[in-house]
Design a protein around this nucleic acid. Structure first.
Lengths: 180, 180
DNA sequence: GCAGCAGATCTAGCACTGCTAGCACACTGG
DNA sequence: CCAGTGTGCTAGCAGTGCTAGATCTGCTGC
């Protein structure tokens, strides 16, 4: 029994290791640089081991994304006011681009906007809703618009479609529009 | 001379063919479904022929994107008013998802937001600026915010992060914020 | 009209990707 | 100490973008 328990514990520990390694690798080389071989080498196992933990590369990205949802929600929760929360959102995306990609850009097999949506993800959305104007009808729509604008700023900037320079001004304008 | 001229003409013609085939293939199977082999088969040549026209797959995507910029700018130009232009933008993205991806989401080797930015791309941005409120200082920033919001709506919806259903309401809210 | 050259095109292959089948080993329980 | 289970490995499949070298076509000058 203890042997089996230890095995389970080791298994879970190795799973954390894989997720952490994938995240680091993605953050330094981008997700296209995260190959099963490089990842396996990093955790000092052979590739097939990865598949005893995850169904495939997509599932690994989903696991990393899930971590990100929790972290983002936590960071947003500590701020009060629309300006601070929105700035924290952009800052998060800037600080952890690969993590942000896994969460919001990459095609990943997670149930969004349904009943089985992960709590952490729902939590992050709630943080946005909190500062948009509480309680009124149609708030979800307004929150979604805010989210879209923030997400657009992030992706257009990262994709070099928008220069990084004036981002503060854009954020200020956006916040202004939502506070009137 | 005529022989060489004809050869150049044929070459240009085949290049158009490749771009069209890539676009069709991407629109039906997504860009990850556009492989050099499938593309070559479609135009009835071998893969290496593609490399006499383009430096690589990225360059092919860039060529397709360039077409898209021109088409989008044309469509936006025919509308008047913020609501109509914004709706046309979303409609374009909805109708040609792969084209839109090449233009705004995929990592593509095109000079954005610099002096050598393709005229067609600059033109599209000008169409947005036209309806945001003409002439005033800081209009570029405001236009960029609008663009970001539209882009965010497109990508979050396509990535299944937002359900498609309430898109008209989101658009209406967004337009409302920009018209006050 | 023909020889020879030049350039365009193809076949074959490289190094890589995600993923999997099947074997070997080590560790567990008796 | 032995049987059996289950874990992890080696090797390989089918596919990717891209390229080197041979081949073959068609033009050019005699």
């Amino acid at each position: 029994m203890t042997a089996q328990a230890r095995r389970q514990r080791d298994h879970a520990e190795r799973e954390r290791l894989i997720i952490a390694a994938a995240r680091e690798l993605a953050e330094s080389d981008g997700w296209e640089g995260v190959t099963t071989r490089r990842l396996a080498e990093r955790v000092e196992y052979s590739q097939p081991v990865l598949y005893t933990h995850f169904a495939g590369k997509d599932a690994i990205m989903a696991a990393v994304a899930l971590q990100g949802f929790a972290e983002l929600a936590d960071e947003l929760r500590t701020r009060s006011g629309l300006a601070a929360v929105a700035a924290a959102y952009l800052d998060f995306a800037e600080r952890s681009p690969a993590l942000y990609d896994a969460m919001f850009s990459r095609a990943v097999d997670l149930p969004f906007a349904t009943d089985e949506t992960p709590p952490a993800l729902r939590d992050g959305f709630d943080q946005l809703r909190r500062v948009v104007g509480a309680g009124e009808a149609g708030d979800d729509v307004l929150t979604e618009v805010l989210w879209s604008a923030l997400h657009g700023l992030v992706t257009l900037t990262r994709g070099r479609r928008l220069p990084r320079e004036l981002q503060e001004q854009r954020l200020a304008r956006l916040v202004e529009m939502f506070t009137r």
